Measured scan of single mutants.
Amino acid sequence: QIFVKTLTGKTITLEVEPSDTIENVKAKIQDKEGIPPDQQRLIFAGKQLEDGRTLSDYNIQKESTLHLVL
């Protein structure tokens, strides 16, 4: 699982696999929060994550925290 922290300070927990794409993660966030993926920007280690890449591409491991910017 990974954590996604929103600007409001809320933390969302997501069940993911390293092979999941960023697009996939955004879809999971939409399921939980109702935020359309095209409004979501995910930041990890100061980098904006691209939809077509996977979590493992960015070396995002379990218990990692991503930041969600709208």
Results as ranks from 00 to 15, higher is better:
L55S: 01
S56P: 03
L68Y: 02
S19R: 07
L55A: 03
L42G: 00
E17F: 14
T13D: 04
L7P: 15
S56F: 10
K5V: 15
L14W: 01
T11M: 11
N59Q: 09
L66Q: 01
E23C: 14
D38P: 06
E33K: 04
Q40P: 01
F44G: 02
L14M: 04
Q40W: 06
N24W: 09
L49E: 00
T11N: 06
K10M: 11
K10F: 08
V69E: 15
E33V: 15
E15W: 14
I43W: 13
V16I: 10
Q48P: 12
T65V: 15
Q48M: 12
V16E: 00
D38N: 11
I12G: 01
G34Y: 04
R41E: 13
E23Q: 13
R41C: 15
K32C: 09
D38R: 09
L55G: 00
Q61T: 12
I60L: 04
Q48C: 15
E33S: 11
E33N: 08
L42Q: 00
N24S: 12
I22P: 02
Q1R: 13
D57G: 04
D57T: 05
Q30C: 14
T13L: 11
F3E: 03
I43Q: 07
E17K: 14
A45Y: 08
N59D: 11
Q1M: 11
T6V: 10
F44A: 03
E17S: 14
T6K: 05
A45G: 13
G34N: 08
K47P: 01
G52S: 12
V4T: 01
L49R: 00
G52D: 11
K62T: 13
I12F: 11
E23T: 09
K28W: 05
S19H: 12
P36A: 09
D57V: 04
A45Q: 15
V16W: 12
H67P: 01
G52A: 11
Q61W: 08
L42E: 00
E50C: 11
Q40N: 03
R41I: 15
L49K: 00
E63V: 04
G34E: 04
K10V: 08
T8N: 13
V69P: 01
K62P: 13
D31C: 12
E50Y: 07
G9N: 06
A27V: 11
A27L: 15
V25I: 12
P37V: 15
G34F: 04
P37A: 14
T13I: 14
D20S: 07
E17D: 13
I2H: 01
L70C: 14
S19G: 12
R53A: 08
G9S: 04
K26N: 01
K10H: 10
Y58L: 06
D38Q: 11
P37D: 04
P36D: 08
L49S: 00
T21C: 05
Q1S: 10
L42H: 00
E50G: 04
N59H: 10
E50A: 07
L42D: 00
P37E: 09
F3N: 05
I12Y: 06
R41D: 08
R53M: 13
E50W: 05
P18R: 06
D51I: 05
K5W: 06
F44Q: 03
V69H: 10
T54H: 06
E23W: 13
K62C: 08
E15V: 14
E33C: 12
E17N: 14
V16R: 02
P37N: 07
G34W: 03
H67G: 05
T21P: 05
R53D: 05
E23P: 03
I2N: 01
V4S: 01
E15Q: 14
I2S: 01
L49H: 00
T65I: 14
E63F: 15
A27D: 08
L55P: 01
G34M: 05
I22R: 00
G52Q: 11
K28R: 07
E50S: 08
E33P: 01
P36R: 08
H67Y: 11
Q40I: 13
L42R: 00
K47H: 14
T11D: 04
I12K: 01
P18A: 09
P36S: 08
K32N: 05
D51Y: 04
I43E: 13
Q30G: 07
G46P: 01
T54Y: 06
V25Y: 02
Y58A: 03
T65S: 05
G46F: 05
T54C: 08
Q1I: 15
T8D: 15
